[in-house]
Nucleic acid binder design. Structure first.
Length: 424
RNA sequence: GGAGAGAUGGCUGAGCGGUUUAAAGCGGCGGUCUUGAAAACCGUUGAGGGUUUCCCCCUCCCAGGGUUCGAAUCCCUGUCUCUCCGCCA
């Protein structure tokens, strides 16, 4: 959520800024609501003052042993008016709240203009795509060899967009997660964290998945208010809901390896084949909670931590700055890492790193004590470090041998009992 | 799942319908005293919001409803914690 001051004092500037990410802010509707809110709130508070004073007077009169009946009669319908006025106020406030919760973050000035994927800007490349002496296969063909990646079995159990991994593929998948966790905890200073995979809806409001992206979530059926996490960013960041941490605890750096669940509504027909887009996938997620001053360097650090995974695996990738229209709801700035997939001859997203300023912290009231002791909203940074399913695809495609076996990246060998080649 | 007990400000903890719209202690901060420190003493000390913004007002005693002129206090529902029993990885 944005600072209410932006809405109240400079809403036209806000509206034009939001237009750069393709969001239309209904200025007239907001102004009208604010007007109503102001007068209603003033009236309500005036009635409350009156009510408080009257009740106090009655109490004092009673303590002196006087007859309070006339005083009580005098208060009369004051209570009813107060209730009525307060109901109105609550209704207005919740309308304003609903409106504000649906407004995305303000973008940083530096990010590329444009609303479409083609407007994203490639910032840098790392590594050279390997020149194969044979025609490289994609992960679907390679995975089919020993039923190592079994889409039919996944579909039989759970439907489309689910997969079963077997033998060396399952092992490689596990190894990748372990490797990433170790890298971030041992080299990058993140605290390993285990979190619930089901969260209350307030958490999804906190990080910004709700109210706008309800259809992307997997809600738990039944009597619970629980939803499967679409990313560990949700539980990790919400650890600080309604908390005030001391400034010397910052930066807080957390990493978690979790499954992620996405309904992928609105992506019918997109990446239907293969493991690129699944309802359930695993991801190692990095989250930092920092002060405003620390935020810029935290963001570039976090990006470099995600890149370190790909560099250690020697996977060619490029860094892309997302344009306004492509930047996530809660983010002020997002860089994607796209890994080279020789089977498809293109770069595919494998990590997305976002700086959210105080947008999420404001929604969940996550704060720290500033230099003068006053609470300030934390700034949040998050990113995948990296998506495990897609990392598996990348390793399989980039390290394939002519006979369909998979060479093991040096960095992973200790996680695979020293094996240099997979697939038998 | 069953039965009980709880949830109060940074912490401990009183209050159980109106002189308490949160006592007291601890901690924190400022001051007096002191060569300095400790001790003692004095003062101060939460969050959010409104506003005619160095003043005043409103809200917050787990959450949401209700009773009342008035609720931390009474009633209902929910959440969480603790103890015991059962079950289970």
């Amino acid at each position: 959520m944005l600072d209410m001051k932006l809405f109240r004092h400079d809403i036209t500037a806000l509206a034009s800024s939001l237009a750069s990410r393709g969001f239309t802010l209904d200025v007239a509707a907001f102004d009208a609501l604010e007007e109503k809110r102001k007068s209603c709130q003033q009236e309500t508070q005036a009635l409350q003052t009156e009510r408080n004073a009257s009740s106090k007077a009655i109490g004092q009169a009673k303590a002196r042993g006087e007859d309070i009946a006339p005083l009580v009669a005098e208060v009369g319908e004051l209570g009813d008016r107060l209730v009525e006025s307060n109901h109105q106020l609550q209704a207005i406030l919740s309308e304003i709240d609903t409106l504000c919760l649906s407004v995305p973050n303000v973008l940083e000035d530096s990010i590329p203009a444009g609303l479409r994927e083609e407007d994203n800007v490639v910032l840098s490349h790392w590594g050279e795509p390997f020149k194969f002496a044979f025609e490289p296969k994609d992960h679907i063909a390679l995975g089919a060899l020993n039923r190592g990646i079994d889409f039919e079995a996944g579909a039989a159990l759970s439907g489309s967009r689910f997969v079963v991994l077997r033998k060396d593929m399952a092992r490689l998948h596990r190894a990748l997660g372990q490797f990433m966790l170790d890298l971030h905890t041992q080299k990058h200073g993140y605290e390993e964290t285990y979190v619930p995979y089901l969260v209350k809806s307030e958490c999804l409001y906190g990080t910004g998945q709700l109210p706008k992206f309800k259809e992307d979530q997997f809600e738990c059926a039944g009597d619970h208010d629980l939803t499967l996490i679409p990313t560990a960013e949700v539980p990790l960041t919400n650890l600080f809901r309604d908390k005030i941490v001391s400034a010397d605890a910052l930066p807080i750096k957390l990493v978690a390896h979790t499954p992620c669940f996405r309904s992928e509504a609105g992506s019918y027909g997109k990446d239907t084949a293969g493991m690129i887009r699944q309802h359930q996938f695993e991801k190692v997620e990095l989250v930092q909670l920092v002060s405003e001053e620390q935020a810029e360097s935290a963001f570039s650090d976090l990006c470099s931590h995600a890149e370190a995974v790909l560099q250690a695996l020697k996977l060619p990738y490029r860094r892309v700055a997302l344009c306004g229209g492509d930047t996530a709801f809660s983010a002020a700035k997002t860089y994607d890492l796209e890994v080279w997939l020789p089977g498809q001859q293109l770069y595919r997203e494998i990590s997305s790193c976002s700086y959210c300023r105080d947008f999420q912290a404001r929604r969940m009231s996550a704060r720290y004590r500033g230099p003068d002791g006053k609470p300030l909203f934390l700034h949040t940074v998050n990113g995948s470090g990296v998506a495990i399913g897609r990392a598996l695809i990348a390793v399989v495609e980039n390290y394939q041998l002519e006979n369909g076996r998979i060479a093991v990246p040096d960095a992973l060998q200790t996680y695979l009992s020293g094996a240099a080649v997979l697939g038998d």
